[in-house]
C-alpha cells in the first residue's frame, strides 16, 4: 500500500532536480507522507487517547505534584525539590525502601530457585497425572486474588492458626508465635506469602522455556554419561536463561512495589517493621494528605524500579545473544 501512495520517490532521484525545486518537493513529500499516515493515526487515536488520559497524564501529574506542597483539595505551594530532599534525609522514609529490598529475597530469589527446580521435576514427570496435578497446585496461587491470599495466610499464621497448631503437634511448641505480630518474624512472614504467590509464575515460565529444548540434547548428554544434576546444569539451565531473566525481572518488580499482601496482612506493622514504599505512598496521600510528598516517593520508587531492573534486563539480553 505504501508503495502505491508515493510512486515518484522511487522513480526520480532528488539529485537530478534543481535546488529550488527540492525544497518544494520535500514539502510536498512531507504533506503526502502525513496524508498517508493519517488513516493509521485515526486507527490508533482512540487507544492513544485512553493511554494518554489514564497512563501518561497521571504519570506527568505525579511528577508535577511532587514539586508542590499540596493537601489534595486546597491551594498548593511550589516547593521545588524539598520533597525529594526529605526523601533522602528522613529515616522514616528510607526504612520502607530497605524493607522492600529485603523482600526481594522472598518475592524473587526463593520463588525463582524453587520454580526452576519444580519445573525441571515436573518436566521429568512428563504427561503423567502427577505432573498435571503438581502444575495446577503450584500455579493456583497466581489465580487467587492477592487480597484473598493475604487473608488466608493471616489466618494460617495467627497465634491459633494452622501453622502454630502443626508446630505444637510435632513438639515445637517453643517456636509458636504470632508470626505477623512479632518484630523479628513479620517481614519474613509477609515474604513467605509473596514467595508462595510468585512460585507458580516462575514455574510456568520455566516450563514454557523447557518445552522448546530439543530432546536430542538430553539424549546426547545421557550418552556422554551425564547424570540428572549434570543434565540440569549443562542443558536445562542454559536453555531457559531468557525465561529466567523474565522471571527475575517480574518478581523483583513485584517485591519493590508490593502493596496488596502487606496492606491486608500487617498494614505495615508491628512498629513499621513491614512498611514498604507502596504502603507509605498510600498513607502519605490518603492519611497525612501530603500529596506532594507521596508523589515524590512514587516518582522515586518508579526510578528505583527502573534502576534495578534495566541492568537486569540488559544482562539477560546480552547473555542470550552470546
Amino acid at each position: 500500500m505504501a508503495r502505491t501512495w508515493r510512486p515518484s520517490a522511487g522513480v526520480t532521484s532528488p539529485t537530478e532536480e534543481p535546488s529550488g525545486d527540492i525544497r518544494s518537493r520535500r514539502r510536498a513529500d512531507r504533506a503526502r507522507r502525513l496524508r498517508a499516515g493519517l488513516p493509521g493515526l485515526a486507527l490508533v487515536a482512540p487507544a492513544l487517547f485512553f493511554y494518554a488520559m489514564f497512563v501518561l497524564r497521571p504519570l506527568f501529574a505525579t511528577v508535577q505534584y511532587s514539586f508542590y506542597d499540596w493537601d489534595g483539595i486546597g491551594p498548593s505551594t511550589w516547593v521545588g525539590l524539598d520533597n525529594y530532599v526529605r526523601l533522602l534525609t528522613d529515616p522514616e522514609l528510607i526504612g520502607p525502601i530497605v524493607n522492600a529490598f529485603q523482600l526481594i529475597l522472598y518475592f524473587s530469589i526463593i520463588p525463582v530457585i524453587f520454580g526452576v527446580i519444580a519445573a525441571a521435576i515436573i518436566r521429568k514427570l512428563g504427561a503423567s497425572k502427577l505432573a498435571l496435578a503438581s502444575r495446577t497446585v503450584l500455579f493456583l496461587p497466581q489465580v487467587i486474588p492477592l487480597v484473598a491470599a493475604g487473608i488466608m495466610w493471616t489466618w494460617i499464621m495467627a497465634s491459633d492458626g494452622v501453622l502454630n497448631q502443626f508446630l505444637s503437634l510435632i513438639g515445637l511448641e517453643s517456636l509458636t508465635r504470632a508470626w505477623l505480630g512479632d518484630f523479628d518474624t513479620a517481614l519474613p512472614a509477609v515474604g513467605v506469602i509473596g514467595a508462595w504467590v510468585n512460585v507458580g509464575l516462575c514455574m510456568l515460565l520455566m516450563l514454557a522455556g523447557m518445552t522448546k529444548i530439543d530432546p536430542a540434547l538430553y539424549e546426547a548428554a545421557r550418552l556422554d554419561g551425564a547424570g540428572a544434576i549434570r543434565e540440569f546444569v549443562s542443558v536445562t539451565l542454559p536453555a531457559v536463561r531468557q525465561e529466567l531473566g523474565v522471571a527475575i525481572i517480574i518478581t523483583v518488580i513485584s517485591a519493590l512495589r508490593s502493596f496488596d499482601i502487606i496492606f491486608i496482612s500487617t498494614q505495615g506493622g508491628p512498629g513499621n517493621s513491614t512498611l514498604v514504599p507502596g504502603l507509605e505512598i498510600y498513607y502519605l496521600a490518603f492519611f497525612s494528605r501530603e500529596i506532594g510528598q507521596a508523589s515524590a516517593l512514587a516518582v522515586a520508587l518508579t526510578a528505583l524500579v527502573l534502576i534495578v531492573v534495566l541492568p537486569l534486563n540488559r544482562l539477560t539480553r546480552t547473555e542470550s545473544m552470546s
Binding site: A36, G37, A52, Q64, W70, S76
Partner: peptide
C-alpha cells in the same frame, strides 16, 4: 514517513498529558 506518524501521535499524547500543568488545586 513512518517516524512522522508516531511523533505526531506522541505529540498529541503529550499535549493531552500536559494539559493539566497549572498548579494543582490553584495557587495560594
Amino acid at each position: 514517513g513512518r517516524r512522522l506518524v508516531p511523533s505526531l501521535a506522541l505529540g498529541l499524547a503529550g499535549a493531552l498529558a500536559l494539559a493539566a500543568c497549572s498548579p494543582p488545586g490553584g495557587t495560594a
